[in-house]
Simulated scan of single mutants.
Amino acid sequence: MTERALRLGTRRSKLAMAQSGQVADAVRRATGREVELVEITTYGDTSREHLAQIGGTGVFVAALREALLRGEVDFAVHSLKDLPTAPHEGLALAAVPRREDPRDALVARDGLTLDRLPDGARVGTGSPRRMAQLNAYARSHGLRIETVPIRGNVDTRIGYVRSGELDAVVLAAAGLRRIGRSGEATELLPVDSVLPAPGQGALAIECPADDAALVAALSVLDDPHTRAAVSAERSLLAALEAGCSAPVGALADLLGDGRELTEMRLRGVVGTTDGSTLVQLSITGPVPTSHGDAIALGRELASEMLAKGAAGLMGERAL
Rank of each mutant, 00 (worst) to 15 (best):
G159N: 12
G243F: 06
A311N: 00
A24Q: 04
L64A: 05
H225R: 14
A132C: 06
G44M: 07
Q22F: 04
G32N: 13
D293H: 01
S163E: 14
G120K: 02
M264G: 03
G152C: 12
T57V: 09
A63N: 14
I283R: 13
A26P: 04
E260F: 06
A18N: 07
K308F: 04
E206T: 03
V169N: 06
A213S: 15
I205Y: 10
A52D: 12
G152P: 13
D274E: 09
T10A: 15
T85G: 02
G271W: 04
T226N: 02
E36I: 15
A318D: 14
L319A: 13
R139A: 06
I145V: 13
G249H: 05
D222T: 08
T125N: 06
T147I: 02
R109T: 13
D211I: 05
A209P: 10
I295G: 00
R317W: 08
V23R: 03
R259S: 12
H88Q: 13
P288G: 06
E300G: 01
S231Y: 00
V59S: 10
N135Q: 11
P128I: 02
L306C: 08
I145H: 02
D223I: 05
A30F: 04
N135F: 01
G164W: 07
L64I: 04
L313P: 10
R28I: 11
A95C: 10
A30Y: 03
T85D: 11
S276Q: 10
G21N: 11
A76S: 12
V96D: 05
A238S: 14
L195N: 05
L80T: 02
A18M: 08
L93A: 07
L80W: 01
L51I: 05
K14S: 14
S163C: 06
R70H: 11
R139G: 01
K308V: 01
S290W: 03
T41L: 15
A95W: 06
L188P: 06
V170D: 10
A63Q: 15
L8S: 07
L240C: 03
T10F: 09
S245W: 07
A105M: 08
G55H: 06
G126W: 12
G56N: 00
S20F: 09
E89R: 11
T262H: 01
D293A: 09
M1H: 13
L117P: 00
E233R: 03
Q280A: 15
G258W: 02
L188Y: 14
T46N: 06
S140Y: 00
S20M: 10
R129D: 12
H78N: 11
A94C: 10
V35F: 09
A62V: 14
S282M: 13
P198L: 01
Y137A: 10
I150V: 15
D167A: 10
P247T: 02
A16C: 14
E241W: 01
L176R: 07
E39D: 13
K308E: 14
A252E: 05
V170Q: 08
L83R: 12
R267F: 02
L106K: 09
L134G: 07
A95E: 09
V148T: 10
L37V: 12
V148F: 09
